[in-house]
Design a protein around this nucleic acid. Structure first.
Lengths: 349, 349
DNA sequence: CTGAAAGCGCTTACAG
DNA sequence: CTGAAAGCGCTTACAG
């Protein structure tokens, strides 16, 4: 293994100067820096992280806790985030350590992990409203970042999309097409993004003077089957007059909705407009729907690099408030949304 | 943070003795060891891994490469292995570092990872026959263990089940029930476990004097949809006289087979016996099938601890051959298998 | 059985 | 702008 000393010997410099040159200290002369970089490159130098960590007093490791859930979609989203996160952290010389949450107490897993590993910080995902993990880590003074946002006045670094706008813009698009009966199939209630989308739906419906469709959310995890079941129930009029448009909080739900529509012999968008929020997961491609799905789109993987950087910066002493990121999802109009069916041609029995 | 010196000061011992006591060196007196352990416990001592790694010259990190695949089952099995592996390695003070394989050249990802991270070894999974990654790592002299076995004369540490026996015993069970037309729905061809199961199927069928059913494997990744499609094709007689029994290489395939059977108005096991190999993944529970599924069962997660230990032992200088583990799957007979339908009462049109 | 010493590779005040 | 020195916390020959 090549060390700073090896490079220094090659150039007649001390390890200290080589270290400073490689780490971009301003006091090193340009020509020295260039010579050092050239030799380091040529000799294939890679800093010994253990040594760096020992001297800086940081472990170079951050933790993330996997909630074991029998829900496939969770696995999909988790895989996506995991792989992206792990690459983004590697780019900042940081390792990602995983642990499993066995259920029950949500902060127990964090306690255990802290007492076992030396961790510089945590990444949280899928926060619920006023998340107890957030409260715990704040109280302990452990650095963390959140994928999502558990309260509107968050004072920690986060990366999230504007979930209120996601729902509200969907409603506005459909209302502009003349739809009056718009249903929203949401995810499981405790999650804060679900609550925000619900708020966005309610807000936009109220603003448009439209009636909220009861049961416009579900406590199931989003899945094709849940979408199918919910859509059948809506289309059968079990929750009042059937909607002319359904917004889904995920493309998985939309798949089920599409199947229900087909099974009832209806057409999209002629009889029913369907749209969804699209996390752009590899498995459920909105563009390959037939008809192609209108969506609000925000690739989940986009969160990884910003989150990794925010956490490493926070650990390095960055200001939490300047590491917050609230993003807008794209609105992509495709073929699954259209004008509301004319009054009086109600296709439902 | 508590250090060896802190403990030593407390007891009037040198850090060296404390280190030896904690690490189980035989020359430390029993009473000293006990006092040290008691104080270390009380003070909440945790060794600084960076320091340990620096002095031992090991990074304490092992690598694993995720093949990105649009296939859900891969995600499921991967999640299962990942989470288990990560816990099992943690118990040996080792971190798991992930990287993503972008496709094309299978060893490129390993090259990149080796040049970027300082890794003590690798865990490989899902080997293909004569796997190029195995050849590469052997040539480079990098320690690795394999979940599975890419060749019968493997000289590296591995953990695998006897996949030949998995298939052969399934055939034997069904043959003993009088079945003569037994089909095998296998996974994608390149994988070595698939090839071994195919060999087991062929061997047992030949031994029983039964005709192999053509197309008894599929190149698709195992999925409910693939099982459905394959079963329909078999039951429709598109591959000769329909089978009276179908063995599936995964419970996912079996789900599809069951659906196909229902759609054709047939009964399990009256008209068709169905069995599968069961990795015991959380999502596809053989016991909840209706009727409950007869399986060969070998929980995927059982591999994690042995594999983690084998790798850490190998890195520590263990003998590869003594770290190999070939295991037998359980045979669990439930309600989806029964006597072959009597001749002449062929239920198929 | 225990201790003093050296050293792993790096960073960073402190001098110059 | 550069170097010599100290030190991060641990392990392990080497002495006793």
């Amino acid at each position: 293994m090549i060390t700073l000393k090896d490079i220094g010997d090659e150039l007649g410099l001390s390890p200290a100067t080589v270290s400073r040159a490689l780490n971009g200290f301003p006091e090193v002369s340009l020509k020295t820096r260039e010579r050092v970089q050239e030799v380091a490159e040529r000799m294939g130098y890679r800093a010994n992280r253990s040594a760096q960590r020992l001297v800086t007093g940081r472990s170079g490791m951050v933790g993330m806790i996997v909630k074991t859930s029998p829900d496939l979609r969770a696995d999909q989203t988790f895989m996506e985030v995991l792989v992206g996160m792990s690459a983004a952290l590697a780019a900042r010389d940081t390792d990602l350590v995983l642990a499993v949450d066995q259920g029950h107490d949500p902060i127990e897993a964090y306690r255990r992990m802290l007492s076992r590993d030396m961790l510089d910080g945590f990444i949280l995902n899928a926060p619920v409203m006023d998340d107890p993990r957030v409260n715990f880590l704040k109280a302990e003074g452990i650095p963390f970042v959140v994928h999502g946002r558990d309260r509107l006045d968050a004072d920690y670094p986060f990366y999230t999309i504007d979930n209120y706008a996601v729902a509200a813009e969907s409603v506005q698009l459909l209302a502009a097409l003349g739809h009056k009966r718009i249903a929203y199939l949401n995810g499981a209630e405790p999650y804060s993004h679900v609550a925000r989308r619900r708020a966005g739906y309610l807000g936009a419906m109220a603003a448009a003077g439209l009636p909220v469709i009861d049961g416009a959310h579900t406590n199931d995890a989003p899945s094709e089957a849940a979408g199918y079941r919910q859509a059948l129930s809506l289309l059968a009029g079990q929750r009042g007059t059937p909607p002319t448009a359904i917004i889904c909080s995920s493309t998985l739900l939309a798949e089920g909705v599409m199947r229900a529509v087909r099974d009832r012999g209806l057409l999209v968008p002629g009889d029913l407009s369907v749209m969804a929020h699209d996390d752009d997961l590899p498995l459920s491609r909105a563009i390959s729907f037939s008809p192609a799905l209108t969506v609000t789109r925000a690739p989940l993987r986009d969160a990884c690099v910003p989150l990794a950087n925010a956490l490493v910066d926070l650990i390095g002493g960055g200001n939490p408030l300047s590491l917050q990121s609230l993003n807008r999802a794209e609105l992509i109009v495709r073929d699954s949304t259209g004008p509301a069916p004319a009054n009086g041609t109600d296709p439902w029995p």
